[in-house]
Design a protein around this nucleic acid. Structure first.
Length: 407
RNA sequence: GGGGAGGUUCCCGAGCGGUCAAAGGGGACAGACUGUAAAUCUGUUGGCUGAUGUCUUCGGAGGUUCGAAUCCUCCCCUCCCCA
């Protein structure tokens, strides 16, 4: 993994930006100075728990934190229990749904557990920003707000876009950066890591730290990981690789991604060393079959999260099921209740929720995507025969079920 | 608070009394192609039905009409301009 770099992409800041190269080299210099302090640095990453699962994109900054830990530094993992109830407007195209605090705390539990797949718990301090943000008075908020020229708040690219496009934009959304900036000040950290989308919030942190007489933190940002289809990674697009995905899913999702995105994934998600990544990228440019490179990537991903054996198995399953169209080893078994035993396939699929409706099952049949023991069944009136040994059902390219007569 | 524009099926968006389960695009699903994919092409995309058909759907509640997504009333929500 590599790819984390110093803040640049300065156009995020809107009009009032230093040259990107300038900010970047300043961060370099500041980090160098901090490292000369001769003490472990405090490095923090803040995450707002807004969903149940972390995806591989979240792991980019976590890997970075781990590197710091390995070098003897102290990591602070900040759970944005308070900020999550407001919602980070960064890179949003419309107003976010607000979450309740109870819900957020529930999600937070998953987050730390998943983060510890990468972080060393012994050298991780977990904090909740509700502990201080919840105690600010209105006067405190006013003081924080006074630090920022209105022009800077309004100049944000994401806000500008929403205003131009007539999307809803609410006042509280502009307060988000204040909250996150205050976190940075409260945590007394030397470095903050995060995605490019956090650029504005991190700068706000520096402004607040300086306002209160603290040295500003170094910003370390990484490119955002795109989804497997090249769009923004988002659960609603179904282009997300979750850390919790089963080995086979994780491998399959990786293989299904467009060839153009291989490099981004190699750089941001793989555990390969820098020169190994370069070698793979070179292979691609030399005209190697992208599938081979992708397989290496898929294997590496599964290995990181599920171990070597699972990765071997996932690779083998892919070879057999997808490439040779053979039946996978593990096919989910579905018991067919007795009242559906003599039914048509259509009724059976709808009754067992294998298809959303009878119409959908018929559609599949008519389109040739309905197979019984690998033979297409097109007759929508055909009745299902379920022998005691069971029967293999395949819907579309790779949804397999073994149907067994049940009670 | 005043004035204006809107809320349509998973999303965007057309429709503005019947011919509307509602154009078009996106997404999704299936098939063809293929080196995994992507791209491309074809088809499908509310439920029940073999099919004619029928039921539910166009922010919410009422109303007008033989008939409403389309007209009227009230309400809720969003955006824009002004204060």
């Amino acid at each position: 993994m590599r790819g984390a770099r110093f803040a640049d992409e300065a156009d995020y800041w809107g009009a009032e930006v230093p040259e990107s190269g300038e900010l970047r080299s300043r961060m370099h210099a500041e980090l160098r100075d901090k490292l000369r302090l001769g003490r472990p640095l405090r490095v923090y990453l803040g995450v707002d728990p807004t969903s149940t699962d972390l995806h591989v994109g979240h792991f980019v900054p976590l890997q970075k934190l781990r590197r710091f830990q390995d070098l003897g530094h102290q990591v602070v993992f900040l759970i944005g229990d308070y900020t999550a109830t407001i919602g980070d407007p960064s890179e949003q195209t419309s107003e976010r749904k607000r979450l309740t605090h109870e819900h957020v705390l529930e999600l937070a539990g998953n987050y730390t557990e998943q983060a510890y797949r990468i972080l060393d718990p012994a050298r991780t301090e977990v904090r909740y920003n509700g502990d201080w943000l919840g105690k600010l008075s209105f006067a405190d908020v006013i003081e924080l707000a006074s630090i920022f020229p209105m022009k800077q708040i309004v100049a944000r690219r994401d806000f500008q876009r929403r205003m131009e496009q007539g999307e809803s934009l609410r006042f509280h959304e502009s307060l988000y950066a204040l909250m996150q900036g205050y976190d940075a000040y409260m945590l007394k950290c030397d470095v903050q890591v995060g995605g490019y989308d956090q650029h504005f919030n991190m700068l706000a942190g520096r402004a607040i730290q300086e306002h209160f007489g603290d040295p500003p933190h170094v910003m370390l940002t990484n490119p955002l990981l795109i989804g497997t289809d090249g769009r923004k990674m988002s659960k609603s697009y179904g282009n997300v690789i979750n850390v919790h995905d089963a080995p086979g899913d994780m491998y399959g999702k990786t293989m299904r991604m467009a060839d153009e995105h291989i490099q981004a994934y190699l750089e941001l998600t793989s555990s390969l060393a820098s020169d190994a990544i370069d070698a793979e990228v070179q292979r691609l440019q030399d005209g190697a079959n992208p599938m081979e490179v992708k397989k290496r990537l898929a294997f590496d991903l599964v290995r990181q999260y599920h171990g070597e054996a699972a990765a071997d198995e996932a690779a083998e399953t892919f070879r057999r099921v997808v490439q040779r169209q053979e039946v996978p080893d593990e096919v989910p078994e579905v018991m067919v209740p007795s009242h559906l035993l003599g039914a048509t396939w259509v009724d059976l699929c709808a009754g067992l929720d294998l298809s959303a409706s009878k119409a959908e099952a018929r559609r599949l049949m008519r389109q040739g995507g309905f197979y019984v023991e690998q033979t297409p069944v097109k007759d929508t009136e055909a009745r299902a025969e379920i022998p005691p040994a069971g029967v293999l059902l395949r819907l579309g390219k790779r949804r397999y079920y073994r149907l067994l007569p049940g009670a």
